[in-house]
Design a protein around this nucleic acid. Structure first.
Lengths: 232, 232
DNA sequence: TTAGAATTCAAACGTGCGTTTCATACGTGC
DNA sequence: GCACGTATGAAACGCACGTTTGAATTCTAA
């Protein structure tokens, strides 16, 4: 009968069931092994590599080893599934950003690089997350590109305050910089970040691990962005 | 019988027919009014706003006011149409870039900003082109995001030399900068540019015309990028 | 003017899509 | 043990897709 949740919020792994070693295998239908979660994991990967339109529910459910009808049962529709997939990761990303910014602001001395790091590092961390992080970030870039006004307003309404906080912090550190100019430059930074997150560049990873690569990317981006912001 | 062209190259408006005022209307099947061209124009717009997977041939042919079968007749398949749409614009963009770079290199004094301008301005000009330029550039960003390895190698093989020329020019202007470091930074710049091209940013255009907006964007990008490249 | 090629057209092809249905299995409280 | 809400399953729905077909039309050149 369900997908009742007329307004869905995150994966409702409400059954906060503490799995012991023996219990695993007896009750697979919880937490990370639930049908819902398996669908979300599979959807993240497939949306990321084939796009929202390009990835079919048959691919998703097959990859998740779940019945085709499960998506409509648990999420109501494909579109709701897409929203769910986005919301889950975005909530965490922006919470991370705000927390990192707060910590930076509380420190005795605040440098431009600290604010930029609070914007950039959580994003790249999300993209390097063990389970489908890369996928999420490609989804994000794709969402930008798919450019549906609906999604744009969704992002603005739900995470606009995060943006405002960062702009304000940067503005305080660059008191002589024109407000409009600051908007432009932050826009540039975010564009570069989005591409960097998705690993679209031409840079070869060489023999670096994912973590080292992520840290290197962050380092370069922060340095570059700081110099750009300070440009006369 | 045709789409014979086993290897398609640009729109074969081979019939270089000089239209006089009276002739227009008599022979609509040439140049800008040909079925092929109408399909390409419509496809650019629809691919840009709905994605390659999201835009159907029925939408394309309907928008082009052309029979459904025309795409398969003239292009062979949807995929060939996509390639054609990309190639046409990319050829021009990269030719423009190389020409602008050549001019800059021939000038008595060469600044970092000149090389950056040669990379950035033609791209933004393409995006502000009267007929579907904006669409093209969204397609490009989308192509990046869709991330098919096939397309990536296509871009690399066909336009890799352009990239190399620019990197070389920048390298000469920044002799103290590490090569790897240069790659990283050029990557960042191109990411930012791609987003700027597609107008994905949050900046409001205000009451600017497309040209002024494009020029402003270029100005900001070049300034920012130059500062970033020069960062110690 | 006319044969032959190039193009357009309406219609249909098979395939895969998102979604719905309804029957069956499972889990939990009485 | 039974009943009832929850979840899964197999199958089908109607629809839109890319592509193909073969006839009708238009163009071109002898």
């Amino acid at each position: 009968m369900p997908y009742v949740a007329a307004y869905p919020s995150a994966v409702d792994n409400a059954t906060h069931y503490h799995a012991t070693a023996e219990a695993i295998g007896e009750f697979m239908n919880s937490d990370a092994f639930s049908t819902k979660q398996r669908i979300i994991d599979a959807a993240e990967h497939l949306f990321a590599s084939h796009g929202f339109a390009g990835a079919s529910l048959r691919q998703v459910t097959s990859s998740a080893q779940v019945n085709l009808a499960a998506v409509n049962y648990h999420f109501g529709s494909k579109e709701n599934l897409i929203n769910e997939v986005l919301r889950l990761r975005l909530d965490k990303l922006n919470a991370d950003r705000l927390e990192t910014l707060k910590t930076a602001l509380a420190a005795p001395s605040l440098r431009l690089e600290d604010v930029l790091a609070a914007w950039i590092r959580p994003a790249l961390a999300a993209s390097a997350q063990e389970k489908g992080g890369m996928a999420f970030v490609r989804i994000l870039a794709r969402a930008y590109v798919e450019q549906s006004e609906h999604l744009r307003t969704f992002l603005h309404q739900n995470y606009g305050h995060v943006l405002r906080d960062f702009i304000a912090a940067l503005g305080r550190l660059l008191p002589t910089l024109d407000k409009q100019e600051l908007y432009w430059r932050f826009d540039i930074i975010t564009g570069a970040l989005t591409f960097a997150m998705a690993d679209y560049g031409m840079i070869k990873r060489r023999n670096l691990g994912a973590e080292q690569y992520r840290d290197l990317t962050a380092e370069h981006l922060i340095k570059f962005a700081a110099a750009g912001l300070r440009a006369g």
